[in-house]
Design a protein around this nucleic acid. Structure first.
Length: 581
RNA sequence: GGGCCGGUAGCUCAGUCCGGCAGAGCGUCUGGCUUUUAACCAGACGGUCGCGUGUUCAAAUCGCGCCCGGCCCGCCA
């Protein structure tokens, strides 16, 4: 107690939890990482019960959290989904679990994001909102800044709402908690007071992680909000824990470093209560663990070497609590580039769900968190195919490797929404095929073609057919968004550039004649006639089909031509085959 | 500068904990389905498991040293 030099530093106590290793030597082998994590959470809970420091009635708490600083992109979903799987596994084992998610909305706005989004998820350029009003609020807590869209109580609330929408969209039940709320209701008051009472201890612990903190200096772990200009300030001049209800601090509103720039302070000198400010992140995080009773928290690799080591040290050696079970997840990229709202490289959950089913997205987040991955919109078909295979292996329709079987068996039921039935009769149209089907606007026609091609069984239940056809819309959105080879577009208004030899030209004229004079156009008969016409004119069949795709789509390849042309109005088909228009 | 994570076929990824023939799907190529699109079936091609080294009968896997990408030691999934 008297010898403070024995306090562990960066490489402190031997029981420090390594947030990386999901499987340590003494763990049982699991096909699913969340099972390994759940083992550790259970061990933590049992240990606390044995030591009598835990109420057996209290549920297990899984936490996540982000600053509502702007467009919540797909990377943020890690914070929701990784915790979800652990929560779900623990529930499966009979535990009561709360999944709490903090909106760290008392954090200050440090720089203006170049891209924002409205509540519908439409991306909006900073220039299209009142950027000046935002600029004047640099340094102020998100919840004190007016919503640039005018629809929510504050900037922070605006983006917190979108976080909640994202969780809803992937069917993850989170309890969204506003950090500002916790401060205003006084939930942080006791722990803040405790940290300030023990501020020399706090300084000492933090100083071994941050050079700017001097163990013997005057650093005070509290940032008041300036009563004059509303900004978060960093200079506390004195602490009086006997003043007012729970104590106050005196401050001077000084400049704040924010990356490569400085946010000016107004110079105001005043006093703030412990509810009128915030703890610095390195203390706030452990304080959240204490207030919310957090047992498990996943976090991005950015925290793994900074906040986490200091966080568990602060938890043990300042607050005297046991930090939660940690888990690091690797970041992933979007089409090979880091997520960045300023560069416009963002995608919202709502956008992704216009391209694929929620269970496919949930599957993506069930994969090994320690692996760096690319979420490729361009090659989204690969992810969907991978999911279809995973599902088929679960139902025993594909053999797969032993590892695949083990993983599918364990994880497939978990990627389905919580109360969803596991239904073997489900139908998955191959994604790229679904994209091609998207060129037909008529749902009945889509179904007809899918049936004809053998993708929908004779006696398929109606719900399965509907669900299968729902993929067509999504795959079509994908084809359009990427403008890839599955985005077939009938070139109706203008004939594409083309160059055919005499034989091909003759064959096209013959085919036009057939279409013009037939009583009715039967799709399969037309398909056969294309084949026959090519042969009669000594044209390679493949080349002849290619000529058709050129004329109608300006592509090398396309949908099955006979059935397609049979559905297009006859005059146009005849004219185009004659190259008249 | 110190520390951490990642790197496996053209692409997306398993396999690394626990050493045992280098794997899957997609793509490509060839052939088949006496119809050729999306597919499906059969086969082929495709690898310095980032590089080197040590241990071992045996190394993608374990140790050590490097390279590349990213992250942390300010803030931030």
């Amino acid at each position: 107690m008297s010898d403070e030099s024995s306090v562990g530093g960066a490489n402190g106590a031997s029981d420090d939890a390594n947030p990386y290793t999901l499987q340590s030597a003494d763990d049982e082998h699991h096909a699913f990482w969340a099972d390994a994590v759940a083992d550790r959470v259970e061990a933590r809970v049992e240990d606390q019960l044995e030591r009598g420091v835990r109420d057996p009635e209290e549920p297990i708490v899984v936490k996540g959290g982000i600053s509502p600083s702007g467009v919540p992109h797909l990377g943020n979903v890690n914070e929701i989904m990784r915790g979800y799987y652990v929560a779900r596994v623990l529930r499966e084992r009979g535990h009561e679990v709360r999944q709490v998610f903090t909106a760290d909305d008392r954090d200050p706005l440090r720089k203006l994001p170049r891209t924002l989004c409205d509540l519908e998820g439409n991306l909006v350029d900073l220039g299209d909102v009142d950027a000046g009003a935002l600029g004047r609020n640099l340094g102020a807590p998100y919840t004190d800044i007016p919503d640039p869209f005018g629809c929510c109580d504050s900037y922070g609330d605006h983006f917190s709402n979108i976080i909640q929408d994202s969780a809803d969209a992937v069917d993850v039940p989170i309890e969204l908690v506003s950090n500002t709320d916790l401060y205003e209701r006084g939930e942080f008051e006791d722990v803040t007071r405790y940290v300030l009472e023990n501020r020399s201890r706090a300084r000492e612990v933090l100083s071994s992680y941050q050079d700017k903190v001097d163990a013997d200096g005057d650093y005070v772990p509290f940032n008041p909000i300036c009563a004059e200009c509303g900004k978060i300030t960093e200079t506390v001049t004195s602490v009086d824990l006997d003043a007012g209800e729970a104590g106050t601090v005196d401050y001077r509103c000084t400049d704040m470093d924010a990356g490569d720039r400085t946010i000016d302070g107004c110079g105001h000198e005043g006093a703030a209560t412990l509810r009128e400010g915030k703890l610095p992140w390195r203390f706030e995080w452990p304080a959240q663990w204490q207030i919310l009773g957090v047992d498990f928290e996943p976090f991005g690799k950015d925290h793994a070497e900074g906040s986490w080591p200091s966080g568990q040290d602060v938890a043990r050696n300042v607050l005297g609590i046991e930090p939660p079970v940690p888990m690091v997840y690797e970041w992933f990229t979007l089409d090979g580039e880091p997520f960045s709202s300023s560069e416009g490289n963002v995608i919202l959950v709502s956008d992704v769900l216009e391209l694929l089913e929620p269970e496919v997205l949930r599957y993506f987040f069930a994969k090994d968190p320690s692996r760096a991955r690319d979420f490729s919109i361009e090659r989204l078909d690969q992810l969907v195919d991978e999911f279809d295979r995973f599902e088929a292996i679960y139902f025993g329709e594909l053999e797969g490797t032993e590892d695949e079987r083990e993983f599918a068996e364990r994880v497939y039921p978990l990627v389905l929404e919580e109360d969803a039935e596991v239904r073997e009769e489900r139908i998955r149209l191959p994604y790229t095929f679904a994209a091609v089907l998207g060129m037909f606007d008529d749902p009945a026609l889509r179904e007809e073609v899918a049936r004809k091609e053998g993708h929908i069984p004779e006696n398929a239940p109606e719900w399965a057919v509907d669900a299968a056809l729902a993929r067509v819309e999504r795959a079509r959105n994908w084809a359009r968004r990427t403008g890839n080879e599955f985005d077939y577009e009938l070139k109706r208004s203008e004939i594409p550039d083309h160059e055919f030899d005499a034989a091909t030209t003759a064959a096209l004229s013959e085919l036009a004649e057939f279409v013009a004079t037939a009583e009715t156009i039967d799709p399969e008969e037309l398909q056969g006639e294309i084949y026959e016409t090519a042969k009669r004119n000594d044209v390679d069949v493949g080349d002849f089909f290619a000529a058709g795709y050129r004329l109608f789509f300006d592509e090398e390849q396309g949908p099955k031509l006979g059935p397609f042309l049979a559905k297009v109005d006859r005059e146009f088909v005849v004219d185009r085959l004659r190259r008249d228009r």
